[in-house]
């Protein structure tokens, strides 16, 4: 074994990481300091100009606020819905299996497909949501969910939470499974009510899986390009863009500035890097 064995075990993944992660990362960082022609040919060094261009873009502050709101509310909503759902799933009852399957489906569907599905559900003229809500007298007139600047943000947060639910629920469910019934029984004998035992026994014991899901969801939602892009693609301007779609639009769609797009991308990587570092630290502590 020795060196050869080590290389055999680690080699493939190291090569994969080098090719799929490290090389593109280096190229992106390099691109962020170069200026490009429209065909993508390098015109020369740009110094920090690309970073200046992207930060001085009038839409930049708005995009940053959008991103923060999107990640924070997306994670909070996902967690708040997942906790009771996981609790429900941990109990044995008729239809439990059905619930689990129903929850797996959005996970198995590609995110782009889910987002396109929501595009049609929410369509002003032909979507199914407007007639349904009108019949239920929730709204009096159809709402342009994806076209109105007031509603699209909440719609996007709702969709990303919907897509993040399966992973979060199953992660919390496995956490719940590790809590032994004896502990809960002991609490009941000591006179703890249901809420008390949840608040003081279950939640603290769930801290590990909760932290992990919050961290992973933050990274995932921050990075979640397809939902924002698909739901927001008919809207001109950058009013509802997050940092990942902003990066894409600047590079390839609107300003056609690959250098500035690469600079934005590097900023994104730094943010994700912080998230990943937190996650790694957290896993080490366990």
């Amino acid at each position: 074994m020795g060196w050869l064995g080590l290389a055999g075990w680690l080699g493939p993944s190291v090569v994969l990481i080098l090719v799929v992660v490290v090389y593109p990362l280096i190229e992106t960082v390099r691109s962020s300091f170069q200026s490009f022609s429209l065909t993508g040919a390098v015109k020369g060094s740009a110094g920090w100009d690309n970073y200046r261009t992207i930060i001085e873009n009038p839409a930049f502050p708005r995009v940053i606020v959008n991103t923060v709101v999107w990640v924070v509310l997306g994670v909070v909503l996902t967690t708040l819905v997942s906790l009771p759902l996981a609790q429900l799933m941990s109990k044995e009852f008729w239809g439990n299996r059905f619930l689990r399957i129903a929850l797996i489906v959005p996970w198995a569907t590609s995110v782009v497909m889910s987002a396109i599905g929501f595009r049609w559900i929410l369509n002003y003229y032909y979507g199914v949501l407007n007639p349904l809500l009108m019949r239920l007298h929730v709204i009096a007139a159809p709402v342009d969910w994806l076209g109105s600047d007031r509603t699209i943000r909440w719609v996007m947060i709702g969709v990303v939470a919907f897509v993040s639910l399966p992973f979060t629920c199953f992660a919390l469910l496995s956490g719940l499974r590790t809590i032994s019934d004896d502990v809960l029984e002991a609490a009941a004998i000591d006179g703890a009510g249901r809420w008390q035992s949840y608040r003081h026994i279950v939640l603290p014991l769930l801290r590990g899986p909760l932290t992990v899901t919050v961290l992973l969801n933050s990274i995932w939602i921050f990075n979640s390009f397809p939902i924002v892009y698909v739901l927001n693609k008919s809207n001109p301007g950058y009013l509802s863009d997050t940092s990942t779609t902003f990066m894409y639009k600047v590079a390839f769609l609107t300003e056609r500035d690959v250098g500035a797009g690469a600079a934005m991308s590097v900023l994104n990587v730094i943010v994700i890097g912080v998230g990943v570092a937190l996650y790694v630290r957290r896993s080490r502590m366990e």
Binding site: G237, Y238, R256
Partner: peptide, 11 residues
């Protein structure tokens, strides 16, 4: 670039 700007702002 003009086309990109039109896409982003005509609407």
């Amino acid at each position: 670039k003009v086309l990109g700007a039109m896409k982003n702002s005509l609407g």
